[in-house]
Design a protein around this nucleic acid. Structure first.
Lengths: 163, 163
DNA sequence: GTATAAGTTCAAGTGAACTTGAAGTCAAGT
DNA sequence: ACTTGACTTCAAGTTCACTTGAACTTATAC
């Protein structure tokens, strides 16, 4: 009854490469038992987990974040409806957040479509010279700083007072 | 009057590392003249371009796509309002598209919140066994296939007929 | 009973987007 | 003059999310 799946089967049903499925197992996103032969044997509910992974990636989460989200589910048995529901609710919140971000971007742009600038708050028409300079360092305020490319370098920390 | 900026100044005002600014120049996203010394001299409108780059990245475009979008602007002079406006309109369309995608995801999820599954179309309640199997390979239909991680491997192409 | 397909591990490669380091030049302050 | 900071180039390193390859074992098909 507990019909287990091989990597190949999981890969095909999840629409992933088998190497990706192995990789996800190595990363702890999904779990597998082993057959006597050493072959992986997956419970069918890994397909659900993998669907979650794919969608969460689409929303912009890293595998690490996804792993953390999934850590709320049991490893040794299929999650209950309630457990999945809890996860999905949190995921919905993420989506709402992200949608709100993009809508803010879009609406800000629309209100400034006339001049085509991207300042969103301080339109180039009312600040034709160097709009960024008046707001301190750069267009960062466009981005909400919640995520996005966040370089680890220290170079940007330097301030010279020469500007 | 055409007051030009150094890498450092551009970096600070754009909120980027100087190395990133040099990198973007190397990638053709922005252009610079050179002083006698060999130092880069940027027109102030690179700040606008960089703002566009940051926001477009946030929306999920690659630097290559962004470069293509920016290629519609002149390199040798500051773009006109009309030129920026054209770019921004296209960009708005991208945002709308992306928002629609996420809303679809969210709404699909909401309608299935009861069971917490992610099948969106074929709820696990009506298809309690292996929902994915009934729809062919995997949860890909969740993703709209428009973008997202698209592995180059051929591994997934294989079909065995054993499933 | 052998070919072939699918599985295993481990190390190394890939591409995107940068960063870091080395080695040296240019500019400003004292 | 000398130090310091910003700049130059170029090569190499980093992280993420995987893929690819090598060397080998297990399972299936004929």
């Amino acid at each position: 009854m507990e019909q287990l799946l091989s990597v190949g089967e999981v890969a095909e049903r999840a629409g992933l490469a088998a190497s990706a499925v192995r990789f996800y197992e190595a990363q702890g996103l999904i779990a597998a038992r082993r057959a006597e032969s050493g072959h992986r044997r997956f419970r069918r509910d890994v397909l659900r987990r993998l669907a979650f992974v794919r969608v969460a990636q689409r929303v912009g989460l890293s595998l690490e974040e996804i792993a953390e989200a999934l850590s709320g589910l049991p490893e040794d048995r299929a999650p209950t409806k309630a457990e999945w529901a809890r996860l999905s609710r949190g995921w919905r919140a993420r989506l709402d957040e992200r949608i709100a971000l993009l809508e803010g971007l879009r609406d800000g742009l629309s209100s400034c479509i006339g001049c085509g600038c991207l300042s969103l708050r301080t339109c180039a028409l009312s600040n034709p010279g160097d709009w960024a300079a008046t707001l301190g360092p750069g267009p960062r305020y466009l981005l909400g700083d919640a995520s996005g490319p966040a370089p680890a370098g220290t170079e940007r920390k330097k301030r010279t007072g020469r500007g």
